[in-house]
C-alpha cells in the first residue's frame, strides 16, 4: 500500500504542472483542457460516457473470452503432442509478425460496424500471449514431479488436471494481465476504424468537434476500465493461487 501511494506523488505533481500551465499560459481548452475541466466533464457527462464505456467493456470482455476459448485448447493440444506444436508454432510466430492493427479496416468490412469486429480484433491480438504463457507454464513443470506422476502411470489428462494446469497458472496469469491491457487497445482501435458506439468511437466524434475535454474524459474512463479489469484479474489470481507463498 505504501508503495502504491508513493506513485501518487509524481502523478499529482504532473497534474498540478498541467493545471497551472494551462491557466498561466491561457491555453485554449479545445487544444489542451486543464485536468480540472477533464474531471468535471467526466462527471457531468457520466451518463453518455457510461453507455459508451459499457460497449467498450463488453468488447474487451468478449474479446478476452474468445481469445481464451481459442488459446487454452490450442496450448493444451500443442502440449499434448510435439507434432501439433511443431506444426503450429511457426504459424503462431508468423501471425505475430503481421501488424494486426492493419487488419482492423478489413475486420470492419467483414464483420460490420457492430461489436463483433472489435471483439475479434481484441481476441486476435491477445490469444497469442495467452497461449504462449500457458504452454510455457506447462513445459516449465519440474521433471521430478512429472516422474512422480509417471511412476503412478497417470494419464495425460490426470497429469494436466492435477499437475500441469496448476503449475502453469502463475505464468498463465502473467499472460492474462498483459492480455487485458492489450485487449483495451485492440477494442479502441477497432472502434476508431468504424463503429457506432464505444469510447473509441466517442473520442473520434468529439475530436472532430474540437471537444478535447471529452476526448480526455474518454481516455480517463478507458483508463479506469483497464485498471478495473487488471484489478479483477489480480483478485482472481490471488484467489486461484492461494497456495503461492506469501512474500
Amino acid at each position: 500500500m505504501r508503495n502504491r501511494s508513493a506513485a501518487l506523488v509524481p502523478l499529482c505533481a504532473f497534474l498540478i504542472v498541467w493545471e497551472v500551465g494551462c491557466r498561466l499560459f491561457n491555453v485554449q481548452p479545445f487544444i489542451l483542457p486543464p485536468p480540472s475541466r477533464v474531471l468535471a466533464v467526466s462527471f457531468l457527462q457520466a451518463p453518455t460516457l457510461f453507455s459508451h464505456a459499457m460497449t467498450t467493456a463488453a468488447e474487451i470482455l468478449l474479446g478476452l473470452a474468445l481469445a481464451l476459448a481459442v488459446a487454452v485448447p490450442l496450448a493444451i493440444s500443442m502440449f499434448y503432442h510435439k507434432v501439433v506444436e511443431r506444426a503450429l508454432s511457426p504459424l503462431l510466430v508468423a501471425s505475430q509478425a503481421i501488424p494486426v492493427f492493419a487488419l482492423a479496416p478489413l475486420l470492419v468490412v467483414w464483420l460490420g460496424y457492430g461489436v463483433a469486429s472489435k471483439v475479434v480484433m481484441a481476441a486476435v491480438i491477445i490469444f497469442f500471449p495467452i497461449a504462449v504463457s500457458l504452454l510455457e507454464g506447462f513445459k516449465n513443470c519440474d521433471k521430478d514431479y512429472e516422474l512422480l506422476f509417471n511412476l503412478m502411470d497417470a494419464t495425460f489428462w490426470q497429469k494436466l488436471r492435477l499437475l500441469h494446469w496448476p503449475w502453469a497458472l502463475p505464468s498463465f496469469f502473467a499472460g492474462l494481465k498483459m492480455a487485458v491491457a492489450v485487449a483495451t487497445i485492440g477494442a479502441v482501435i477497432g472502434e476508431w476504424v468504424g463503429a457506432q458506439k464505444g469510447l473509441g468511437y466517442l473520442m473520434i466524434q468529439m475530436n472532430a468537434r474540437l471537444r478535447a475535454d471529452m476526448v480526455f474524459a474518454s481516455i480517463l474512463w478507458l483508463t479506469v476500465i483497464g485498471m478495473g479489469l487488471w484489478g479483477l484479474v489480480g483478485l482472481l489470481e490471488n484467489k486461484v493461487l492461494y497456495w503461492k507463498k506469501e512474500g
Binding site: 503412478m152 496448476p166 503461492k244
Partner: peptide, 21 residues
Amino acid sequence: KDLLLPWFSLEENALLPAKIL
C-alpha cells in the same frame, strides 16, 4: 525430495495415489 504438490493440502497430497491409480 518430498515432492508434495504446493497447491494441495497435506491430506490431498497423501491421497494422490488413490486419485490416480
